[in-house]
Write a protein that binds this DNA or RNA. Structure first.
Length: 273
DNA sequence: CGCACCCCCTGCCGGC
DNA sequence: TGCCGGCAGGGGGTGC
């Protein structure tokens, strides 16, 4: 579900609801969630009493800053962070694996059908080093020069390179395919073969697609919802993702689907070279 | 280093 | 109707 735009949409909704609030109680009831470090009980008790100083994002990770430590949350494929205004409204179901009761009466719950999501604590100062993820594509630091350096240094095809979180953080399968379409670049191209003008176009396309995703409040392919249960509206604006067989919006050639790096990959064989 | 392949987990959808 | 394979937005590990 969640790539950079979806995580950012959720983050923006959470800021006014949890920043400055105290975590009065925390319960984690799925051991898989904390596999990266600590037991559910340890993390739950470590959270109780802490105050949320900020909610930040790095790539597809949420960082809840708690004063010295940060609660790191990753949604995996199907994770959801849902907001409930009162304890009485809170309705956990069989896929609700954690919840935080915050001051003011609200509840933040973590629901994840496939259990690929994660929650763990890190010293705030160690977050970047530990997560080991790359440049933020919407930051000023993501220049054409930076992208060109990644491309030149890599023997990989361009799409798997875009999905490598150690290089650029936050691009997932949807936004990689959409960015490559808008840049007119075939996903199977060797990254090192991209000409400077193509790298420039790709950088611009990545930023435009991610911004559009945020502006339209995310891509709801099946189960993405914001914390208030609202779906995003970007999926109807996808030009290639999950559109195999449909005519290309530009040239009417049927969109093709191949498998690349074990991921479904969608492109226009005419517009993307 | 790249990459093919496997795993984790659950639900849905289409074909037979 | 029921079963089975394929597929799904995530990442991590192994071995060549």
């Amino acid at each position: 579900m969640p790539e950079l735009p979806e995580v950012e949409v959720i983050r923006q909704a959470l800021v006014p609801r949890v920043v400055g609030r105290q975590i009065e109680a925390a319960r984690i009831c799925e051991p898989r969630l904390t596999r990266r470090g600590g037991t559910p009980q340890e993390i739950g008790s470590a959270l109780a009493g802490r105050t949320v100083a900020a909610v930040r994002r790095r790539g597809k990770y949420f960082l809840f800053d708690l004063g010295g430590e940060s609660l790191i949350v990753h949604l995996g494929m199907t994770g959801q962070l849902l907001w409930w205004n009162t304890r009485e409204e809170f309705r956990p179901d069989m896929h609700t694996h954690a919840h935080l009761c915050v001051s003011g009466g609200g509840v933040l719950s973590f629901r994840d059908v496939r259990k690929f999501g994660q929650m763990f604590l890190l010293p705030t100062a160690a977050v970047d080093r530990t997560l080991g993820i790359g440049v933020e594509p919407l930051d000023d630091g993501f220049t054409a020069e930076v992208l060109r350096r990644f491309c030149r240094a890599s023997g990989a095809r361009i799409k798997p390179l875009l999905l490598d979180q150690r290089k650029v953080a936050g691009i997932g399968n949807i936004y990689a395919d959409e960015s490559l379409f808008r840049a007119g670049i075939r996903p199977t191209r060797r990254a090192s073969s991209l000409r400077p003008a193509e790298v420039q176009a790709l950088r611009r396309a990545i930023r435009a697609v991610l911004r559009a995703g945020i502006r339209h409040r995310g891509s709801s392919i099946s189960d993405f919802r914001d914390p208030c249960g609202e779906p995003g509206h970007f999926a109807p604006l996808h030009r290639v993702y999950h559109r195999h067989g449909e005519p290309c919006v530009t040239c009417r050639t049927p969109i093709r689907r191949i498998v690349l790096g074990q991921r479904g990959t969608h492109f226009c064989p005419t517009c993307q070279r």
